[in-house]
C-alpha cells in the first residue's frame, strides 16, 4: 500500500516537473530575439554596431518644413515627439533605420512616415569615429509621454543583435511641472542650428 502510494506520488511529481519544463521552454522567437542594451538619457549606450546618446526630447503640436519652396504643415491628432540622438558607428558605416517610441503600457509607436521629403528625414547614416546628430519624429498619444523608452536598432526586429532601449526620463517641463509643448516646430531652422 505504502509502496503504491510512493509510486503514485513519484508519478505526479514527474508529471509536474515535465509540465513546468514544457511551459518554461523559451520559444524560438525569444531565443533568437534582440539582445537588449538598456540605458538612460544623457549617457552613451553602447550596442554592438553603434553608440547612442539621447540628448533631448521635445514635443510639438505641429511641424513645419519647406518642400519645393512651399511651406508644409503637418498636424497630428496627438503630439509630435522629437528625439535628438547623438549616434556614432563602432566598426563600419551603417544606418540606424529603426526607431520606436514605446509607451509605459508597451504601445509601440514607429517613426512617422508622413515626413517624406522633409529635411533630414532619410535614415541617419553614421560612420565610425564621426559622431553625428539625428532627429527622430514620432506621432504619439499624449498619455504615452511619461515612462517612455526609445528603441533603436539597425533593422526591423533585430535577430541575435543588439537593440538599444533608452529610458526617456528628462522631459521638457514648464515651471509648474506641466509638460512643455511647443505650438510649432520648424524642421528647417532646427537643421540649420544643429547640423
Amino acid at each position: 500500500m505504502k509502496r503504491r502510494l510512493a509510486t503514485l506520488l513519484l508519478l505526479a511529481a514527474a508529471a509536474a516537473v515535465l509540465f513546468a519544463m514544457q511551459r518554461s521552454t523559451p520559444r524560438y522567437d525569444e531565443l533568437t530575439g534582440p539582445l537588449l542594451v538598456s540605458g538612460r538619457m544623457g549617457q552613451p549606450v553602447r550596442t554592438r554596431l553603434f553608440d547612442a546618446n539621447v540628448e533631448r526630447v521635445q514635443f510639438a503640436r505641429q511641424l513645419v518644413y519647406e518642400r519645393f519652396d512651399r511651406q508644409t504643415v503637418r498636424t497630428t491628432s496627438g503630439l509630435w515627439a522629437i528625439v535628438t540622438v547623438e549616434l556614432s558607428a563602432r566598426s563600419r558605416s551603417m544606418h540606424v533605420g529603426r526607431a520606436s517610441w514605446v509607451g509605459p503600457q508597451g504601445f509601440q509607436y514607429l517613426l512617422s512616415d508622413r515626413l517624406a521629403l522633409a529635411p533630414g528625414q532619410s535614415p541617419p547614416a553614421i560612420e565610425p569615429g564621426l559622431p553625428r546628430r539625428a532627429r527622430y519624429f514620432f506621432e504619439i498619444r499624449p498619455d504615452q509621454v511619461d515612462g517612455a523608452v526609445l528603441w533603436l536598432s539597425e533593422h526591423v526586429g533585430p535577430r541575435l543583435d543588439s537593440e538599444a532601449h533608452i529610458k526617456l526620463d528628462v522631459l521638457p517641463r514648464a515651471a509648474d511641472g506641466a509638460l512643455d509643448v511647443m505650438d510649432t516646430f520648424d524642421m528647417n531652422a532646427a537643421i540649420k542650428e544643429q547640423p
Binding site: S77, G78, Q108, E139, R141
Partner: peptide
Amino acid sequence: PLLHPGMP
C-alpha cells in the same frame, strides 16, 4: 499611411 495605436 502608417496608423498608430489608439490614434484614430
